[in-house]
């Protein structure tokens, strides 16, 4: 586990919006590592800061404190121009709403090749067209679509265009911010399959941001649960779902609707009450409770969680 190559490392990340009286700490001391080839999930409710983390890695949001390392080299703060160009190309993002994230006035050809043009990643026009063509084919669209406008496509097709736009840059790391939550049930499965096939073919690493836990469980290898700007629990996805420790994680998992009427009606929903923590006297830290399973807890809670763990509740 520990000897796997780390692609992206976030160290004590802090993001603060506004200053003075309106200061708001959106991200508080978040640290995690993403290994090569895996899908790392980030789940939380709206306003928890999951998108802010994604945007910090994309360098859209400024980082107030801490470091983000890509392949061991920092990507925030002062960096050389070459490295800047390289990251711009190697880290790409897929957005949530395919209706809003495509330029309505541009043809698909332009939308997909905009990144190429900006980084001058082609020799002549023929090569650029070839790249666009390949990207379209890769996401299961026809090359002819390049001359059309976004409004001519359905939601699922638009999301494929968004994926093609990321792929054409030949990235290594893709941030997918709720890539399927705006899509219909039957189309979701198509796009999920597409994402995992592309991952295998192109050796990609994903940061998958979502609020739908059933999808996170299906697609991710490891998952971090974020609550009010802090990661409260991080583990391999199956471990996290079968053995959630932090009360917030437990509440979140218990609230996921099950597609089985008998189970769904019989289950009890846990409610998370943040006032249960006694953090002023005994501040929490992020502790590894078993191999690769981290939880935010203070000393007193930790003893309780450990016993809970042994009995296997």
């Amino acid at each position: 586990m520990s000897n796997r190559e780390v692609v992206l490392e976030v160290k004590n990340l802090n993001v603060t919006f506004s200053k003075g009286k309106n200061k708001f700490r959106a991200i508080r001391d978040v640290s995690f590592e993403i290994y090569k080839g895996e899908t790392f999930g980030l789940v939380g409710e709206s306003g928890s800061g999951k998108t802010t983390i994604g945007r910090s890695i994309m360098r859209i949001n400024e980082v107030t404190g801490g470091e983000i390392l890509f392949k061991g080299k920092p990507i925030n703060g002062k960096i050389s121009k070459d490295w800047d160009q390289e990251i711009t190309q190697k880290i790409q993002m897929i957005f949530q709403d395919p209706m809003a994230s495509l330029n309505e006035r541009a043809k698909v050809d332009y939308i997909i090749s905009e990144g190429l043009v900006n980084t001058k990643k082609y020799k002549n026009n023929a090569e650029r067209l070839e790249k666009v063509r390949n990207a379209l084919l890769e996401v299961g669209l026809l090359p002819e679509f390049a001359s059309r406008f976004p409004h001519e496509f359905s939601g699922g097709q638009r999301q494929r265009i968004g994926i093609a736009r990321a792929l054409v840059m030949e990235p290594e790391f893709i941030i997918a911010d709720e890539p399927i939550s705006a899509l219909d049930v039957s189309i979701r499965a198509q796009v999920l399959n597409l994402l995992s096939n592309l991952q295998k073919q192109n050796d990609l690493t994903y940061l998958f941001i979502a609020h739908d836990l059933s999808i996170v469980r299906f697609i991710t290898d490891r998952t971090a649960v974020i609550y009010k700007g802090q990661i409260v629990e991080l583990a391999e996805t199956e471990k996290l779902f079968s053995n959630p420790i932090h009360p917030y994680t437990r509440a979140l998992i218990s609230a996921v609707p099950e597609p089985n009427p008998y189970k769904e009606r019989a289950k009890t929903i846990e409610i998370y009450d943040p006032s249960q923590h006694n953090y002023i006297k005994d501040p929490p830290s992020f502790v590894e409770i078993e191999d690769g399973h981290f939880v935010l807890a203070n000393e007193e809670e930790l003893t309780r969680y450990r016993t809970m763990f042994k009995i296997g509740v």
Binding site: R188, A189, L192, S214, F218, E258
Partner: peptide
């Protein structure tokens, strides 16, 4: 519709899609 639910899919395999 039921088959395309991620809860019914097996991890690492293709999810059924219409």
């Amino acid at each position: 519709l039921l088959s395309s639910l991620p809860q019914l899919g097996a991890k690492g395999e293709e999810l059924y899609s219409i």
